[in-house]
Amino acid sequence: MFKALVVEKNEADGKTSAAVQELSEDQLPEAEVTVAVEYSTVNYKDGLCIGPGGGLVRKYPHVPGIDFAGTVETSADDRYKPGDKVVLTGWRVGEAHWGGYAQKARVKADWLVPLPDGLDTRQAMAVGTAGFTAMLAVMALEDHGLTTGHGPVLVTGAAGGVGSVAVAILAALGHEVAGVTGRPETEDYLKGLGASRIVPREEIAETVKRPLESETWAGCVDAVGGPMLARVLGQMKYGSSVAAVGLAGGADLPATVIPFLLRGVNLLGIDSVMQPYDNRVRAWKRIAEVLPMDKLDSMVHPATLEDLPQLGRDILKGQVKGRVVVDLNG
């Protein structure tokens, strides 16, 4: 028997409820690898899956948790053996498939990545899906020409999970980092991660009639979308790129094509869910090499399974700062 957060749906009124339950291994889905889960995290998608579902959960009862790290217990795939440390993000685990909010998980071998040297399972989940996505965004900007010394790099939604890790990674790589936040109380936190400038959200949250403004940013990791992304596109330097990773500010993009045509700006879409294996390994290796562990520790807030229902509500309200690491054995 093992503990898990189980979400159930009342068919009469369509409402969901989440509570910690005891499950047995024979209730796990069929797949090649069984993992003793040690740590997971809380992401925006997790908030949806713990609560109303957001259209992500296919059937109930359901175990959420879109990422986890732990130790292989059994494996029917030669790539993994008992005792191997592994990490999982994406592949709709925690949405369409049972996820990491349990002391055991059974998943396809193709979905796992060996834990890179230099990271333990707790640190891997301090990074989690958010940090993995942040590194994918930074790598995409580098692949499209971002180098140090060409101006500040903007991070929107900087105090959130993706933004926090993006700030720390970019600063560690030697970039001047500007962080956008609507929470003034996070200024010291962001400066501690390496941000050299704080941009109040209201300065950049609305579109303007001018399709182009002064060339300001050498690159951008955008977790907000909506009008803010449209505004940022008009402030990018010639030939620079924006890596779009989220839509906290809305899915609409009230922009013009002028920045693309007159400044050669690139808008790069970042998806972490279906990312190919080789690029996953590349990203996790870069994370282990680049991300300062002291900065990582400063982002972390510990939690247990019992804390998850409230944390799910909090993250949907934008009330979670940094990275929540869930100890499945805590």
Results as ranks from 00 to 15, higher is better:
Leu5Asp: 02
Ala12Cys: 12
Val20Gly: 03
Glu25Asp: 14
Glu30Arg: 12
Val33Ala: 02
Ser40Thr: 09
Thr41Ile: 11
Asn43Phe: 10
Asp46Ser: 06
Asp46His: 05
Leu56Gly: 04
Val57Leu: 11
Val57Lys: 04
Pro61Ala: 07
Pro61Asn: 07
Val63Pro: 04
Ala76Asp: 15
Ala76Glu: 14
Arg79Gln: 01
Val87Tyr: 06
Arg92Trp: 15
Trp98His: 08
Ala102Gly: 08
Lys104Phe: 10
Ala105Thr: 06
Trp111Tyr: 13
Trp111Cys: 09
Val113Phe: 06
Asp117Phe: 15
Asp117Lys: 15
Gln123Lys: 13
Met125Gly: 00
Gly128Arg: 10
Ala130Leu: 11
Ala130Gln: 01
Thr133Val: 14
Leu136Gln: 03
Leu136Trp: 04
Val138His: 01
Gly145Cys: 00
Thr147His: 15
His150Lys: 13
Pro152Glu: 01
Pro152Val: 07
Gly157Cys: 09
Gly160Phe: 10
Gly160Cys: 08
Gly161Tyr: 02
Val162Phe: 08
Ser164Thr: 00
Ser164Arg: 05
Ala166Met: 04
Ala171Cys: 08
His175Thr: 09
Val180Glu: 02
Val180Met: 06
Gly182His: 05
Glu187Gln: 12
Asp188Ser: 11
Leu193Met: 10
Gly194Ser: 10
Ala195Lys: 05
Pro200Phe: 12
Glu206Met: 13
Arg210Trp: 15
Leu212Asn: 02
Cys220Gln: 03
Val221Thr: 02
Asp222Leu: 05
Gly225His: 00
Arg231His: 14
Val232Pro: 00
Val232Leu: 07
Met236Pro: 02
Ser241Ala: 09
Val242Trp: 03
Gly249Pro: 08
Pro254Gly: 06
Ala255Ser: 10
Pro259Lys: 06
Leu261Ala: 10
Leu267Cys: 03
Gln275Glu: 13
Pro276Phe: 05
Val281Gln: 11
Lys285Gln: 14
Glu289His: 09
Pro292Met: 11
Met293Leu: 15
Asp294Glu: 05
Leu296Trp: 02
Leu296Asp: 00
Pro302Lys: 02
Asp307Leu: 07
Gln319Ser: 12
